[in-house]
Design a binder for these strands. Structure first.
Lengths: 134, 134
DNA sequence: CTACGTGCAAATGGTTTGCACATAC
DNA sequence: GTATGTGCAAACCATTTGCACGTAG
């Protein structure tokens, strides 16, 4: 499987766009953590590491990462559903298939116990193509 | 387990805030779907259903939903990690525990097959309290 | 009846864009 | 050498806020 960097380079090359030091820096920073983030945090982080990069370039690079499919731009998301489902989301038509598999639920409980983690909520989302869009 | 509406009412009551028709409308709309959304989309949706509601009220209500813990505000999130882990995220200290359980992976493959769904990616995130924060 | 909520319009601040110079290929 | 990228500052637009009137409890 390709790394994020390779996937981004492929995307850029396909569109005759260039892989610059600024784009590298943003990419590295974005994928250095697993957390959600804001554009401002990136600016602060990058400046900390003595990099000169403008806000405009950060926004332009984030936009490219979204277009390349490496990043998703969202705003609000639910924290809970009171009744719990897991989801499959079709990347083409957007259809959502809800499912629940008790064996998966059980295994999650087991994994939490093993890690001494007290779960309050979980979310499993599988992305791909549904039957109609394959 | 309480419904979103009950949880929101509890939150409001505890702070001596009121449950108005506008707040009900936003709540209903927000939890009518499982998707990420933007404030603007809500405005359009609500106006479609003949509701008169101002942008300001929508923003104020979204802010309350975030404070109540029913909603999370994010901006960018990764679409893939090239190496795959699942995550436990501590709601208190933010610590992330990565794990992978092959039995869970297997069951996901099985569920996809059952639903004729061609998976490209999945993400499992468990939220709760870590050992140190219990 | 009173404290809280709403709509409106103005203020704010994050994001985008036009332009001149810089650089990857 | 040329097309693409960058920084800067101005423009734009989403979000927040102050205020006067409305309403839930």
């Amino acid at each position: 499987m390709l790394s994020e960097e390779d996937r981004f380079k492929n995307f850029l090359t396909a569109r005759k766009l260039k892989f610059t030091a600024e784009r590298q820096a943003v990419l590295d920073r974005v994928f250095a953590t697993h957390k959600h983030f804001e554009a401002d945090e990136l600016l602060v982080d990058l400046r900390h590491n003595d990099l000169k990069i403008s806000k405009a370039t950060i926004y332009r690079t984030l936009s490219l990462l979204v277009k390349s499919g490496l990043l998703r731009e969202v705003h609000y998301e639910h924290v809970h559903g009171c009744e719990h489902h897991d989801h499959m989301v079709c990347n083409k038509c957007g259809k959502i298939i809800e499912f629940i598999d008790n064996r998966i639920e059980e295994l999650q409980i087991e994994v939490c116990k093993k890690n001494k983690f007290q779960a309050e909520y979980h979310r499993l989302q599988i992305q791909g193509l549904c039957e109609d869009c394959c």
